[in-house]
Nucleic acid binder design. Sequence first.
DNA 1: CGACGATCTTGACACTCGTCAAGACTTTGT
DNA 2: ACAAAGTCTTGACGAGTGTCAAGATCGTCG
Lengths: 216, 216
Amino acid sequence: MAAPARALAPSPESSARALGAKQDARRDQLAESALETLGELGYARTSLREIAAKSPFSHGVVHYYFASKSELIAYCVRYYKARCVTRYDAIVADSSTAEELRAAFAAKLAETLRDEAPMHRLWYDLRTAAYFEPDLREAVVEIDAGLEAMIWRIIERYADLARARPSFDSPTTYAVLDGLFESALTQATLGDPAAAGQRLEASAAAVLPTLISLHP
Amino acid sequence: MAAPARALAPSPESSARALGAKQDARRDQLAESALETLGELGYARTSLREIAAKSPFSHGVVHYYFASKSELIAYCVRYYKARCVTRYDAIVADSSTAEELRAAFAAKLAETLRDEAPMHRLWYDLRTAAYFEPDLREAVVEIDAGLEAMIWRIIERYADLARARPSFDSPTTYAVLDGLFESALTQATLGDPAAAGQRLEASAAAVLPTLISLHP
DNA sequence: CGACGATCTTGACACTCGTCAAGACTTTGT
DNA sequence: ACAAAGTCTTGACGAGTGTCAAGATCGTCG
């Protein structure tokens, strides 16, 4: 017996800093195994033993690094967020015309639908799970706000390049594009993945112009 | 011990017809209790015992009328669908101008968001649960198609009244409006319900005109 | 090298779940 | 009114869960 799970104590300096770093590294490693499992099985059907099975460790280790399942999930969710919110920043920075941005954005949407479907499924699963599990709400609201801001940056840039202005406010614009993406993800999962990618690229490219209006 | 759960035998005529009707009535009653529970707790957290607790019966009865949990869920899902797919038909039939339809549709969206939030939460929960549970897929795909057709009828009528044509195809149009609704449902559940209703009505009214285009 | 602390494994606990069976109760048919 | 069929309750089973604690193992430092 030794260190408590999720020791919050500042720890006695010296080698403790490196020690804390090692613990964080292990936590990240477990979070990756957890995300892999969550992406495959979904939130409700993922058990700690299943997560451990996808890692090099036994199920006790999970409880050694995380005080509870809720804490593990919260850690995973924030770990996941860090990667996805900057997904389109390069497109915003690199595009020099509205048409270029429109095509690049639609293509990138289809690409991430193809390459990261399990993570997207997990995200929508977590968001609806938050309807029923208050523990998840804080993290979900935070991520959703991050995604909305990400979309808004794209639309503002798109409007700028087109010498136009966004037609709708940020939440509405995000809701429209999120609807297109979730619809495509559903088709990709329950139907034809290849067709879903093509349809998403086409529908996003088609809808994008309606999200901005020419100057008054 | 007696009748098998979910007896599929044609049954010996005479009084069997009425008997089957009684069983169907009980099944419907259990389905209503189940839907109430599912709407409150969500799919993953709803147990047969919890469903029975919300009914006048004990947990054994559920297994008496349904061979398995999957069968109960499937029955519930179709029972639920019968009610929701015709929700906007009156609006389509009664509106005589595009503006009237637009306002009535936006108002009805906000109304059902307010009055039937648990059922809507359940629907989105089931749809994402289907990502991970193949048993649910058939029913989910069927309901989703029904909802898409429902929306398409509205948009076609709206376009007719406005002497215009739908801007996008049926799946895209449905995805856009579904995105608006899910976004509002999330705000209603995780944030401010009253604000969510107002925002949904406003955003739907604002987006609707972009879903049709003037004649060529 | 020996000891100590950190890390990991193993096994157990209390609980919930879907499923099922035995029997009690109710309704129906004759 | 009696018997048969239908209906419902009760209690149990095995499997799976999160949680936790005791001990084995490893690395590191005096």
